[in-house]
């Protein structure tokens, strides 16, 4: 058994009321029904939650979208340059252009020989920054299972310090990054740390 409180409020009216835009001549009837109708109260509550949430979320999204647009239009040069670069790249790809493969520098073998007395006669040389494989002939050198290999520059600063294992009567030590310009000294130590050999190595600029 119910009291007749009239028809439920329309969604559009609820929306207008929640936004404060319901025409004045409709407010009295609207509020009289609303005060007595729980269904419409629930509807209005849901509507107000929605409207308030959209109102609070919209500015954030608009601001984010606007700042993206502003960035693009505020920096036209950046945009044009990027666009041109993209176009050139696309054109080159379309024409089947492929970049030249990166040149892998060859490894130079440097034979180290002991020289006594007359420096420069048998001077070992290498190009700066070129990967090198330093080779030492073990003839006349005490046999050992391993040796300590050291390279220092003219001021005595270590450029490499490692342990090498001989094979086939010689020692091969790779220096993948090469050496800096200037004179270097390659030293070979025995197991007990005694200096067995010292070689001079001149590193020159690449031609």
């Amino acid at each position: 058994m119910q009291i007749d409180i009239g028809p439920h409020l329309q969604e559009e009216e609820l929306e207008q009321y929640s936004m404060g835009r319901l025409p004045v001549d409709r407010i009295t009837e609207f509020e009289e029904h609303f005060l007595a109708c729980e269904t419409c109260q629930d509807q209005l509550l849901a509507m107000e939650v929605f409207v308030n949430a959209v109102r609070s979320a919209s500015p954030k999204l608009r601001k984010a979208a606007r700042s993206r647009r502003e960035w693009i239009f505020a920096w036209p040069r950046v945009g044009w340059v990027a666009g041109a670069a993209f176009a050139v790249t696309a054109l080159l790809i379309a024409r089947g252009w492929t970049p030249a493969p990166t040149r892998v520098p060859a490894i130079a073998t440097v034979l180290l020989q002991a020289t006594r007395g007359i420096e420069g006669l048998a001077q070992a040389k290498a190009a700066a920054s070129q990967p090198i494989a330093l080779t030492i002939d073990l003839t006349e050198i005490p046999v050992a299972s391993s040796y300590r290999f050291e390279i220092v520059d003219a001021r005595g600063r270590a450029a490499l310090d490692s342990v090498v294992i001989p094979a086939n009567g010689k020692i091969v030590q790779s220096v993948t990054k090469g050496l800096s310009l200037g004179r270097h000294y390659v030293r070979l130590y025995g197991i007990n740390g005694e200096l067995l050999r010292e070689f001079s190595l001149l590193v020159e600029a690449q031609r």
């Binding site: 058994m1 009291i3 007749d4 109708c37």
Partner: peptide, 20 residues
């Protein structure tokens, strides 16, 4: 929707009465 108390028949009305 509001309803009148069934304990008080005097207040009970028919739904959607034209004589609300």
């Amino acid at each position: 929707s509001p309803s009148l108390s069934p304990e008080n028949p005097a207040l009970v009305a028919e739904p959607h009465s034209t004589n609300s």
